[in-house]
Design a protein around this nucleic acid. Structure first.
Length: 649
RNA sequence: GCCAAUGUAGCUCAGUUGGUCAGAGCAGCUGAUUUGUAAUCAGCAGGCCGUGGGUUCGAAUCCCUCCAUUGGCUCCA
């Protein structure tokens, strides 16, 4: 007998060789039906794998990440089997589970897959599922594994196995398909009730641009048909919220081939929105002691040679601008930091001056690869809500904390209440990869970790993800559909102060090197607004939205009254339009609901006589008539609430 | 940059096997209507069917080049 410890610390005895599935059966038939994998001493196993020693276990169902992993990983194998059945001789790369589903990378030789082939593959998968194929696990020697895949002429698997240690290699087999795999897998394919292959893509073997590009088939599967339907609805919803679509509909921004790829043109409504956001952040930053600066859009090539960016990115950037003077070259500014370093250098600094915080909405240009451009989220010209804080090493923690406060304030004001932070630290195994003293690094990393804890941030820590010049903290928000977006970033930098020889005179009358913090709460205006659009589906917070109210006269007879009301509201700083078109009220309501204007004010004979407006809230229907004064109060109170509530947090 | 798909009026889309196939709705303009909570009616105007080449008696439709877009990959100071 062996002792099995459950997550609640209770212990039960089972026969040696018992499986997770059998343990689940002993608890309840329903659990047995739902269990997908099992953690044995924190290693995720197949729930059909015999447990031979006493262990702590945890059973995983669909709702657990480990359960989904096993489910989707098994689905990837199923996809592979279907592909092999349909296209004999296909070679396999890797086929993991991912956040939403799974993929398999395959080499089909000369055969090209297209979207039209996906239904056939799906059908084949269904067919295999209905055979209720069991997944069986086999431990094999390295030589046997190599032998098997060499015979099969699957060079990718052979390469993978070559990198593995003998004794750690397992193969999984279901039906006619055998794959190199660590597992775990489902007991059999019958749990897979709904299959959808989503898309095809090219993917470099082992993510290496210089190697062969394989065909990647993406798919997702579910234990219930209903879950698939729900997932497809979310995909549809995401399409509806696409910022490129809404940006077009609401006339926020556009692109022009003549102007150039990845160079957004902000239309009046979009510009208004963006400027309001900028003003909002500027005000916050002034309160936090930031000093606005302005720097030019170009800089001497030497500036970026000094900063080191030219060596690293010069080739892939917009190429230097020549001047009539011999040998003189300027670069479009790819970042603001070097300029701000030069501002710092414009005069000597005492330790008493620090910290110094230079802020600029700085427009930068980067030559992103054409295949990378995407709406407003990846562009070639964009404006960073940039600032650089120059401080003493012992001020780092406090400055970091203040930046976090700003970001938190912004997020709460804009209703991003679901976010995590990622802290990127050094890879402890390669300390020589990083510039700056160990002492400073330790100080900075400790400061970031402490601040994150004090602010009670939901944090994940990534070792080895730090830039060579310093550790960083990124904010990753989840939008209304649960999609993740990286927005604000705070980075510590020991490199630029070194390269620019930045100094301050300390209390000891000696010269010292300041630490620099780069930070951008929005990241870039373009990206942030894109995410904001997708998060809100274009229904921006009242304080921010370009037009807050529109007056809809019942007929042209009431246009005069509408204008009068509009003037009153505009005087009360409520941004108001009038829909004077000769249309029926139903039409005006429909059109302006679609424009996502928060308040529709209907005025006709009754309202004119009583000096009122009939208020209709976008998406929420008729709210009844009220005086203009009451409406102004309603709006101003809501705006105050939006802006104040967050500052109390 | 790489792989795949797509590219028809300002927008959303029809165009069957190459032969009145240059269409519709919305938006726009003109007129009628003067309207009470999500689309009033009628008329007009709008396109070198992404670009350049080719096949053909004939190409939006078939082939190739290029450009762009979309989904990924690589990249992202």
């Amino acid at each position: 007998m062996i002792k099995i410890t459950f997550p609640d610390q209770s212990v039960r005895e089972f026969k040696e060789g018992v499986t997770g599935l059998q343990i689940a059966e002993s608890i309840s038939p329903r659990l047995a039906k739902e269990v997908l994998s099992v953690s044995v001493n924190d290693q995720v196993w197949d729930c059909t794998r015999p447990i031979t020693e006493s262990a702590a276990i945890q059973l995983h169902k669909w709702d657990d990440k480990e359960g989904k992993d096993a489910f989707w990983h098994s689905s990837a194998h199923l996809l592979a089997e279907a592909l092999e059945a349909l296209y004999p001789g296909v070679k396999f790369g890797i086929g993991p589970s991912i956040e939403n589903g799974f993929y398999y990378d395959v080499d089909l030789g000369d055969r090209v897959l297209s979207d039209n082939d996906l239904p056939d593959i799906e059908k084949k998968m269904q067919e295999l599922v209905s055979q209720k194929l069991t997944f069986s696990r086999n431990e094999v020697s390295k030589s046997d594994a190599l032998e098997y895949f060499k015979t099969k002429e699957d060079e990718y698997k052979v390469e993978l196995i070559s990198d593995l240690e003998d004794g750690s290699i397992t193969l999984y087999k279901q039906g006619n398909f055998t794959d190199l795999c660590r597992g775990p897998h489902l007991p059999d394919t019958s749990k897979i009730k709904a299959i959808k292959l989503l898309s095809l893509a090219g993917a470099y073997w082992r993510g290496d641009e210089t190697r062969k590009q394989l065909t990647r088939v993406y798919g997702i599967t579910f234990p219930k048909k209903k879950l698939l339907d729900e997932y497809l609805v979310i995909l549809e919803e995401a399409k509806k919220r696409d910022h490129r679509k809404i940006g077009k509909e609401l006339e926020l921004f556009t692109f022009s081939h003549k102007v150039g790829l990845g160079l957004p043109l902000w239309l009046p409504k979009g510009a208004q929105l963006r400027e309001r956001l900028e003003q909002f952040l500027k005000k916050v930053q002034i309160a936090y002691g930031y000093l606005p600066v302005i720097t030019p859009h170009i800089g001497h090539k030497e500036l970026y040679v000094t900063s080191g960016h030219y060596a690293k990115y010069g080739e892939d950037s917009f190429q230097p601008i020549q001047t009539p003077a011999e040998g003189e070259e300027f670069l479009l500014k790819p970042m603001n930091c070097p300029h701000h370093c030069e501002i710092y250098k414009s005069k000597p600094h005492s330790y008493k001056d620090l910290p110094i915080r230079y802020a600029e909405f700085g427009t930068v240009y980067r030559y992103e690869q054409s295949g990378e451009l995407h709406g407003l989220t990846r562009v070639r010209g964009f404006t960073q809500d940039d600032a650089h804080i120059f401080c003493k090493p012992d001020q780092l923690k406090e400055e970091f904390a203040k930046v976090i406060d700003i970001v938190l304030y912004i997020f709460s004001t804009l209703a991003f209440d679901n976010f995590i932070t990622q802290i990127s630290l050094r890879d402890p195994n390669t300390p020589d990869k990083y510039i700056g003293s160990d002492e400073n690094w330790e100080k900075a990393e400790k400061a970031i970790l402490e601040v994150a804890e004090e602010k009670e941030l939901d944090t994940i820590i990534e070792y080895g993800e730090a830039a060579f010049y310093g550790p960083k903290l990124d904010f990753i928000v989840k939008d209304a559909l649960g999609r993740k977006w990286q927005l604000g970033t705070i980075q510590v930098d020991y490199n630029l102060p070194e390269r620019f020889e930045l100094e301050y005179v300390g209390q000891d009358n000696q010269k010292h090197r300041p630490v620099m913090i780069h930070r951008a709460p929005f990241g870039s205006m373009e990206r942030f607004i894109a995410v904001l659009i997708e998060h809100t589906a274009g229904k921006f917070p009242l304080w921010l939205t370009p037009d807050q109210a529109i007056i809809l006269p019942i007929s042209e007879k009431y246009n005069n009254y509408a204008q009068k009301v509009s003037n009153l509201l505009n005087n009360s700083e409520i941004r108001t339009l009038v829909d004077e078109r000769n249309e029926k009220i139903g039409k005006k309501i429909r059109d302006n609901e679609l424009r996502r204007i928060p308040f529709l004010l209907i005025v006709g004979e009754k309202e004119e006589n009583e000096g009122t407006v009939s208020v209709r809230r976008q998406g929420d229907g008729d709210k009844g008539a009220m005086t203009i004064e009451n409406f102004v109060n309603l709006v101003t109170q809501e705006i105050e609430k939006q802006l104040n509530q967050s500052s109390n947090n």
